[in-house]
Write a protein that binds this DNA or RNA. Structure first.
Lengths: 260, 260
DNA sequence: GTCTTTCGGTTCATTATTTGAACCTCAGCT
DNA sequence: AGCTGAGGTTCAAATAATGAACCGAAAGAC
C-alpha cells in the first residue's frame, strides 16, 4: 500500500476510536510501527487533519475536514437538503432516522435524528454500515449496478448476530425483493432487537449516493408497522432525490436498468 | 516534503479550485508531475477524499471529509453551537456574518450567514482568511500567544488592496489595540469597500479556536456603526465561547496572559 | 479530411523517501 | 532502586516515489 493510503487509513482509524488516543495506541490499532505512526501523525497535524492535545499528548481529529466538508456541501448539499426530511420522518414515525453517504466504497452515517422515545435505537454519527447487515446497506446495494453488488458480496461477510444473512445467494434474493419493493427491510442484521427499513437516494440513471433509514426496536415493529415505515422511508428518499437531482426521477423505472 | 504532505496539499488545491478540474490542470496547479498527481488522486479517491466524474473524467472533492467533519462536530460542536448565534447576529445587524476555524495554521471560513440586503458582502465558505488582512485574522491573532503572532508576521505579507497593512510593526500595534478593545476592525484589508469587525472564540487560558466576524459595505459603516457592530460581535463571541468551553470565561482577564 | 495539440492515462529504470529496531528520556508503579 | 510502558528520535537498510517518454483518443486548426 502506498504511504498516502497508509496515512489515510490511520486517519480513518483515529476517526473510529471512541476518543483521543495516544501514539502507542494508535500505532497498535493500525498495525504500524510507532515511529511511522508518529511521522504520519505529524504530517496529518501540519495539515489540520489531526490535533494533538498539548497536555495529554493524545491525538484527536482536527478541523481541516470541516472546511472540506463545507466546501463539498456547497457544491453538493446532501446534508442540508436531506436533514429536514429526516427530521420530518423522525417526528412522523417517532423512531430514529439516519442518513448515510457512500464514499470510499463504504456507507457511512453522516446524520442521525434521534427518536424522542425512551426506548429507542441509538446510531452513531460516523459509523460504517455494512452492506449485507443493515437496511441502509441493502437499500443502497439493491439499486447499484451488478458490478458493485458482486464486489460487495465477494468479500467475506461477517455475521454480527444470529440473524445476519451471510449467504451471497440469499442476499442476492433479498436485494431482488428490495429492488421490486422499493425499500429494504433488515431484521436483527447488525444488532438483535432492531428492525430497520431504508431506501436509496439517487439520480435516475446512476449509482445511489446514499440512503435514508428508520431503525426501530423489534417490539414496536410488527409487520404492518414495518410496511408503513417502509413506504414512508421510500417516499422520503424519493423527495430528497428529487430535490437533489431534479424532477426526472418520477419517470425512471428502476427495473429497466438492470436488464443489461 | 513528505509524500503525505504533497498529497494533502493536492487535496487542498482541489478544494480551492472553483469547480471540477482535469488531471493536467490539477498537476499544473500543484507543480506536480502528471503521473504523480494521478497516483495521488487515485489514492485519495480510494479513500473517498476525491471523486472522479466518470463522464468528464474530472476530479472533485469526495464525501469522506463529510464523515470526518461530522465526527469532529459531535466531539467538538463548534458549528452547531455557533451557527444560531451567527444567524442572530446577522439578523440583528443586517450584515453578512461569517465563522472561521483555525486548522493547519490557517483560518478558514466554515460558515456564512448572508445579509438579506441587496448590497452586501459575499464571503465564500472554505475561503482562507489571511491573518494580517482580515478582521477575523486580526481578532484571532490578537488573542494568541506571542509566538503565534511572531510566526504569522514573519512570513511575507501580501498587500491585497492599497489599504492592506503589511508592516509588522504597524500590525503589532493594531493587534495591541484589538486586544485592549476586545474586537478587531479591518478597513479594506482584503477587498476595497469592505469594513469588518471580528472577535475570537476561545477557552480562557488558551489559543482561540476561531473567530466570528461581521462584514459590511464601507458605505454603511460609519464610526458609530462600526463600534456598535464591534460590541455586538464581541458579545456574541463571548456567548459562543461560554457555550463551548463552560462559564469560566467571564472571570478571565485577557491582558493578564500576555505579561510573560 | 488531415495535421497538430492536448487530453487522460501508463510504463519502468532511476532516485529519493520511507521504514523500524534500537535507542533515549521521563513518569508512574512495585 | 529497579522496572515498565509512555512519547519521541536516530540512521543504515529496504522500499516506494518519481518523471521523461510513451500510448490512444479527441478536440481544434487549417
Amino acid at each position: 500500500m502506498s504511504t498516502i493510503g497508509k496515512a489515510l487509513t490511520l486517519l480513518d482509524t483515529i476517526s473510529r476510536l471512541e476518543k483521543e488516543a495516544g501514539l502507542s495506541d494508535i500505532a497498535r490499532h493500525c498495525g504500524l510501527d510507532k515511529a511511522t505512526a508518529r511521522r504520519f501523525l505529524v504530517e496529518l497535524e501540519k495539515h489540520g487533519f489531526v490535533e494533538q492535545d498539548m497536555e495529554t499528548r493524545r491525538y484527536r481529529l482536527g478541523g481541516a475536514p470541516v472546511r472540506l466538508a463545507r466546501i463539498r456541501e456547497t457544491r453538493f448539499p446532501y446534508l442540508s437538503v436531506a436533514t429536514p426530511f429526516a427530521k420530518e420522518l423522525a417526528s412522523l414515525t417517532g423512531e430514529t432516522v439516519h442518513l448515510s453517504e457512500h464514499a470510499a466504497g463504504r456507507l457511512s452515517t453522516i446524520h442521525v435524528e434521534d427518536s424522542q422515545r425512551a426506548h429507542r435505537v441509538i446510531v452513531d454519527v460516523g459509523s460504517i454500515l455494512p452492506f449485507h447487515a443493515t437496511a441502509s446497506g441493502l437499500g443502497f446495494l439493491a439499486f447499484c449496478p451488478q458490478k458493485e453488488i458482486d464486489a460487495a458480496l465477494s468479500a467475506p461477510l461477517q455475521a454480527f448476530t444470529d440473524h445476519t444473512l451471510t449467504d451471497p445467494t440469499a442476499l442476492r434474493q433479498t436485494l431482488g425483493e428490495t429492488l421490486r419493493r422499493g425499500y429494504s427491510i433488515c431484521h436483527h442484521g447488525l444488532e438483535t432487537g432492531v428492525v430497520s427499513v431504508a431506501a436509496p437516494i439517487r439520480a435516475p440513471g446512476s449509482t445511489p449516493v446514499g440512503a435514508i433509514a428508520i431503525a426501530a426496536p423489534a417490539t414496536r415493529a410488527d409487520k404492518e408497522t414495518v410496511e408503513q415505515m417502509g413506504r414512508a422511508v421510500m417516499a422520503t428518499a424519493r423527495r430528497i432525490s428529487e430535490r437533489l437531482f431534479g424532477l426526472e426521477q418520477a419517470a425512471a423505472d428502476p427495473l429497466a436498468r438492470r436488464a443489461g
